[in-house]
Nucleic acid binder design. Sequence first.
DNA 1: CTGAAAGCGCTAACAT
DNA 2: ATGTTAGCGCTTTCAG
Lengths: 344, 344
Amino acid sequence: MTPTMHDVARVAGVSIKTVSNVINDFPHVRPSTRMRVLSAIEELGYRPNLSARGLRSGRTGVIGLAVPELRQNYFAELADAIIRAAEKHDLGVLVEQTSGDREREIAAVTGAGRLRLTDGLLFSPERLGQDDRDLIQPKFPFVLLGERIFGGPTDHVTMHNVSSAQAATEHLLEIGRRRIAIIGAHPDQREEIRSADLRVRGYKRALGAAGIPVDPQLIRVAAPWHRENGAEAMRDLIASGVAFDGLFALNDTLALGALRALGDAGVRVPDDVAVIGFDDIDEARYSIPSLSSVDPGRQEIAETAVELLVERINEKDGEAIPPLLVKSEFRIVARESTGSTGSS
Amino acid sequence: MTPTMHDVARVAGVSIKTVSNVINDFPHVRPSTRMRVLSAIEELGYRPNLSARGLRSGRTGVIGLAVPELRQNYFAELADAIIRAAEKHDLGVLVEQTSGDREREIAAVTGAGRLRLTDGLLFSPERLGQDDRDLIQPKFPFVLLGERIFGGPTDHVTMHNVSSAQAATEHLLEIGRRRIAIIGAHPDQREEIRSADLRVRGYKRALGAAGIPVDPQLIRVAAPWHRENGAEAMRDLIASGVAFDGLFALNDTLALGALRALGDAGVRVPDDVAVIGFDDIDEARYSIPSLSSVDPGRQEIAETAVELLVERINEKDGEAIPPLLVKSEFRIVARESTGSTGSS
DNA sequence: CTGAAAGCGCTAACAT
DNA sequence: ATGTTAGCGCTTTCAG
């Protein structure tokens, strides 16, 4: 069978405690003893049993990440960044997909599901929203991601949705566009706290500051934020005959779909319509034309989220710090779809 | 502290064994007893400690997945499918990224790294190749993915690279193309066993069968298979002045980059050049024009791989089955880039 | 600096 | 049908 510490101890001629000391880099071990233990470990091919360690220490060295779907580009890139960030802290990442399903999202927060073998959870909800805030009462280290829910009792890492959307709109204004359409508004009209609404708000704010009236006809619904819906919304907009010379798509995937519909309709980008998306996913750089976008600071989001989670994991029971809300820095990335000739 | 089975047993007025029986759905428990235990569990908010269970049973209920990078579309979609497949078997998935780094890939196979808390590993190497076959001697349940290594001592799930590439080329031949370029050949010339070489072989086979000589000028190197490299290879090809009316890009990402370069050069697709990619990633459906591709059977790969791994995990020591090699079914998906008007 | 021994929470013989 | 009990492999007091 697989060797245990006892085997190592026997081979090295020391006690099990000494083996433990060596493995955990405890200070007081005589170099010669350490060497003997190390070579015994080598000889036997010993590997610590992490279940046993986890049982004893209460830590597994694994954190959970719950996202809607990895096949959505944004989440794949987020997961990529989070796994890298976790690695720096020597943590593994168990990825769970909720498929944007309400029940599964609830299971994730309540610690049911598969994520019990973890020391904490990074959770990016898609379906749960402000009304479900009270559900978020996790009894374990937890960091909330995204903008579906605000004001909960946990740490929260998100982006500057309003001001970055405002900046995106201003970017279109700066290149002389005045009839700026938006694609991706939420079907139901009441303003909630979710990416769509926040970004629409930033759009309106930019128009307001420029003294341009908001034309409701230019605000188009699209959900979910997939390519087909972006394309469809754009086809509708074109068919409606409403004039427009700029487009702010609420994410890159919608923008890519819209680009497709614009191309089909013979509308030139950026000449006839300048387009900017949101998220700055990899493919934005390589679409035809390349897509201007808002980089929401994904890297920073990932690193911050993992750091916060690690702090919560390490926190002693008494010294609870009040929940933190962190917003990452954003950046407008100008590419061909808004007239920038350079590549970026 | 978090409640244990003992607490549940005390509250329910039964022994710990009975609690265990209830939790594990053992047959012989009186309904009334079961009810009492269940309500005690509810009342205390008891959750089994998976570390303890893992220590006792030797199983963690988690499998590892080692891929180069999630931000590469193909792997994100693969991981998505694998997580779904694992779920059906009630398994969690711990995702590790090797970044296509040799050392890290070795660490993954040898069971170092973060994947020790797992019951087995699905491994998709990028850097390790045929020469490293001897390194693949894992001492734990293991399933190899992809085509970097063949003939190892483990189960292996892969695709029909040669025949599907042949079919892709034939698809171009069928629509009348005769000067078919290929993008994505490997920089070093010797034929190894890796996707690039296998797919080039299928291409040559198709040309041979059609009685068309292979023109080395039409076989273009590109590595790694990223958009920029596809675009660059296409720019080179166009600049070289070599005539061509068809393109087989060895994956979709290269194809998308090539599409971009073709567009920039004013070459019409599919009129001047028909293009087919490989992988059938989501975005192939939404590029302009939509991209024909080879669906390698990703779903099937994921499900098969997980099933094989589960079998290896459950296998008794004595009854070892010889390693299996499984190849998924592929399918040509014709879209606009090869003249298909319908959407698919 | 090293050893002995307790016990983390659970499962599975074995007993009743 | 239910209870008792012995570890799984490790960390960690506590002694020496």
